[in-house]
Each structure stands twice: as C-alpha cells, then as structure tokens.
Design a protein around this nucleic acid. Sequence first.
DNA 1: TTGGACTATGCAAGCGATTCCATTACAATT
DNA 2: AATTGTAATGGAATCGCTTGCATAGTCCAA
Lengths: 330, 330
Amino acid sequence: MNLKEVAKRAGVSIATVSRAINNIPLVKGATRRRVFKAAAELNYFPNLNARSLAGGRSRALGMIASNLENPFFFDIFRVLENRARAHGYELLAANTDYQAEQLERCVDLMIGRRVDGLAVIVSEMDPHLIRKIDETDIPAVFYDVGSAKHRMSNIRVRYKNGIERVVEYLHSLQHSRFAFVGHHSVLCPTGERQTAFLEAVSRYSNAEWRIVANEDSLDGGRSAAREIFASGFRPTAIICVNDFMAVGVLRELREQKLRVPEDVSVTGFDNIKLAEYSSPPLTTVHIPRDRIGLLTFEALVPESAIGKPPGREIVVDPEFIVRESTGPAP
Amino acid sequence: MNLKEVAKRAGVSIATVSRAINNIPLVKGATRRRVFKAAAELNYFPNLNARSLAGGRSRALGMIASNLENPFFFDIFRVLENRARAHGYELLAANTDYQAEQLERCVDLMIGRRVDGLAVIVSEMDPHLIRKIDETDIPAVFYDVGSAKHRMSNIRVRYKNGIERVVEYLHSLQHSRFAFVGHHSVLCPTGERQTAFLEAVSRYSNAEWRIVANEDSLDGGRSAAREIFASGFRPTAIICVNDFMAVGVLRELREQKLRVPEDVSVTGFDNIKLAEYSSPPLTTVHIPRDRIGLLTFEALVPESAIGKPPGREIVVDPEFIVRESTGPAP
DNA sequence: TTGGACTATGCAAGCGATTCCATTACAATT
DNA sequence: AATTGTAATGGAATCGCTTGCATAGTCCAA
C-alpha cells in the first residue's frame, strides 16, 4: 500500500497525503481526516526506506557495541534508545562480538542505512574505520579512542583512576598476591585497565602478580580463574576487568571451595546490576552508563544539545564502590 | 556518493555499476575491476534504503522482544542474528519492555522498514496486532499465541510440562508451602506457567501457596521475594517464572540470612547461562533457545527450509534440570 | 466588484538504487 | 564475408516518498 492509493481513495494528491501523514499544519482539518480515514481503511504504512531516500535523512541512529550480552553495553543501549525515541529517532543496534571483521560489516551496514548518527562503543576500533566513518560526514561518537574532531566526539573513561583505587584498597587490606583477569580485546579499555594494574601493583615491592585473559563472558571469567589456579599461583585478590567476568570468577571459586572474601578477594568493574546481585555482592568501580548514553545522544543529535560544540571530548570519571567480595588478606 | 558518480568515474552506465557491485556474473572482469576501483576511490557505500525501495525487499529481518536484557530473549536474538547474517540478511531488533504501546510502535517501525520477516517474541501480544501484521503479507513468527495460518507461524513452548515437573519434584522432597514469582505480563507465557503452577499445586491436599508478581528484572525478583516475606507467608520453596527473577530472589534470601536450599528451595525457568553461575546454581527448566532461534529463522525465510510449509505450528519441549538450589524441605 | 493576502492543494522533479528490454561487440560458424 | 549466437553494456522506467514552486480557493477590505 502506498501514498498513491491513499491519495486516490481520499480524493486528493499524494503531496497532500504526505503532508497530512507528516502532520504538516498546512492541511485543512477536513482533508486531514479524509486522508487518515483512507489510510486506515487501506492499512497503509509509510515506507520508511522511501522516506529516508526522499527526505535525505533516515531518522535513525546507529549503535555498535562489542558485546550487547554484557549489561554494561546493554545499559548504554537502553538509555540511547530512550533518548532516540523521545526525539523521534529509531535506534539500530549491532553487535560485533569483539571481532574486527564484524565491526567492519556493521559499520558498512550503518553507513549503508544512512544513519543520522553513529555511536561505536567497542574496544576493537581501528583507525582505518574511523577514517571511513569520518569521510561520510555522519556525526559519530567513539569510545576511548583518539581525540575529537570535525563532527566526531570521543568518550574517555578514566579507567586508570578506578584501577588505582582498587589496587590501593586491596593493598591497604594487606593483599600482596594479585591476579588480573582481562578479556581478549586488543585495544584500549582492557589495555588501559591492564596497564594501570601493572603500574599500580609495581609500586609495591612485596607484590606478586599474574595476568590472564579470556573471552568477555561468564564462561570466560570462569576459565580465566581456572587458568590461574592451574598455573599454581595462589592469589589473595583477583581483579577483574569487568563485573561480568567477575561473576564467572566467583563461580569457579565456589567450585574450588574457596570462600570470598575470607580466602580470596574479588573485584569487578562497571557496577552493572548483576554486581549487586552476585553472591557475595561485588566490590567494583562504577561507570556512569546513564551519563555516557545521554552524552552520546547529545553528541549525535546536535539540536538536542544547543550550545555544545559538535565534536567534543567527553571525560567520564569512575567511582569506587566497596561491597562484600573484598576483605583482609588471609 | 551514489551510483551515478561511480558510473561516471568508471566510464560505464549505472546499470553496469549496479551489476558489478551486486556480483552479477554478466559483468566482464576488466569492467568489474574498473568499477570497484572507482567505488573505492569515491568512498562509495550502496544506499540500502534506495536498494530496498527499488529491489522490493529489504534483506532485513525484524525481531521484537519483550525484554532483551533478559538473556532468554538475547540468546534467541543471537541465534537469529547469526542465521540472518549467514543468509545475507541483517537483523533489526527492538525492545518493548512489556509495554503494549511500545509493541505497537515497534511493529509499525518494522512494517515501515518493510522487513522481509518478523519475529515477535513477546508475551504482551494483542490480536489486533496480529491482524495488522497478517494484512501486510510479511512472513511472521509469534510466540505462544493462537495457531499458525497463511504465512504466519507460531512457536509454542510446553511450559505446563516444565512447571509440573518442578512442582512434582519439590513435592517429592516434602515441600508443602509454595510461592510462585511471576512477572507483570498479561498474556500467555507467565499466564501459562502460573496456571500450571496452580493446577499442579492444587493436587496436593496439604499444600499452601501464594502468588506474587513484579517486573521481569533482578530488582523485580528481589522485590517479589520481599513481598512474600512481608506478607508473613513462609514458603519452603519458591518457584520463579524465570531464572532472571530467580537470581533476584536468591539475593533477597541472602539478605534475610536464609540458606538455599537448606532453609528454602528456589527454582528458575529457561536455563539461561546465569542460572549456572548463580550461587547456588539454579534448579531450572531448560528451554532450547537455539532451537527456537533456528526454527524462527526457518519460518521467516522459506528458502532456508525447503519442504517445510510456510505457516506452521512449532512445539518446543522443555527439560527439567536439577542443580543445587533445591533440597529437602526443612 | 475587485484585488490582495493568505491558506490549501496539486504538479513534478528528484532521492539512489534495480531490472527489463534493447543494443552493441565480438567470436564462431557457414 | 556474411550470419548468427552469446556475452557485455546501456537506456529508461520504476520503487514510494518529500518538497519547492505554481496554482486554485477563500475571505475580507477598499
């Protein structure tokens, strides 16, 4: 069903139908009603593809995430979707599973759909893709990568501070054997956290440590923990790159009959809901995902944030939260 | 950048460029190379909106879910996305948060995008929407609602069997005071589980029970548990409509210093990964989401399932899984 | 009655692709 | 050399919509 049919039935031109459907005030009340009646009778749905094509914009935003299964990303998605909807946009979401190849596919897809703004919240970003997106003139937001320019913004989370706080806190509880559980992502976020971990831990002369990595999932966290113990290392504290994996670590400790925090302390990162719901609840570092989502939206849709420059550098500070998964070293 | 520009640069017609880009074999090797070279130099991306419009199909599938945050839905999403990608489709996902109003918006959006197939995995479905979708001639899959017809399929999970097994099992462990934790969804899935619970529990003359409902989230599960205890009822077993909420229940029990399963047994439903990772791991009922995702895809894309009829009734059987969250009544 | 000044509507040109049909190029066959 | 068949390309209509511009209708003041 298309405009033409509706126009015929309502006895007006397609231009008028288009205006009526789009609530353009020019149309007279009576005409508008006739149009809506005809549209309803014919079960008419505006073809959004045609609309995007003709209108020159898609009224859609895109979000690409590394792992939507991890609530960290999902929470951002949720905020972004709500903002988008409130402003008459729809949100197209895509998942890369941390794979560079899929990321490229997703980017092509989003550009192909001619989204009006694109958020790329991934840790496997590649400069070549940034250039690619840049050349399209689509407003974009990246995450922890390079700096802002043109119409591209960047969100930077100060992971380093967070990890430092974690290590300091554990050290103050007399811990000295640390394990760091990361995930298989080549670039920034894990990288920064891992680097920060190394720096922090190196400051203590009596500290020993070990680093393992696995995929970003519950299973990945558990496997990582298993790997640590298989190596013979006996950490008194396990610092995880995020809460999701930390829950996996907790599971393995349970299996090994190690009590948390009496025998070993565990920390997460992100402060997803699940951190509060794990047993024991996780000591972690809060990253304000609401704020990230909101700022991302504002960066993508300039008219929603008048006065703020189109391409900007956004810095987000984490916040340390102590719960029950950490305690004095045994 | 568009076809015309690429055509000009490559010195061919737009028809030829279109064929080259779409890998239609008619194009001579040398020409093809010239076209790709020009496209690359111009940073050309096919406009998918235009393509959908001209081609008469969008090469996109849609999936609408009640709550993508609940891994039950996300797992289906993942399978569906993989199948879709493997067959050259993209997947548009939308979330309703169990709200009828949002569901309608999502449906309009999907129809507006002219998806080639639409899966509606929600429990708040409404007959009027089914008719709406039916009239568009888009192949669709629904979930636990009515029966199959035309090009519309239906997936039905035999929840009843699952709940029966759960109740029987708990009864065999001498439990007699049951609580059922559901969520605020008007229609089938919860409804069926709840009804099945009532039926099963009514068979035992010494059984007492109570039913509470809350939103489908970790918080919702916890609040539901709180409500039970606030009412003064002291269940020996809490049967949850799904694992996600069960994890919330577990959290509240921890707060109340009640041991699971020594003081109270808890069961979930769905067998999401988290069920295995909670503490204690949840006794639950497995619903094969891989199978559901796959069957959904086959129902949406007929050419992927030759021989099978377009509109069919798919029945899925759950499987009872005992873990550590259940034990003999205290 | 007529002439603005609006308000409502229609016409038609795109938007960027696909695809049917016609045409050309070229090689093989007679 | 003429003919034929096939492979490669181009022309142009079409998909459903938006929107600038032209036009028709309406109302009121002069």
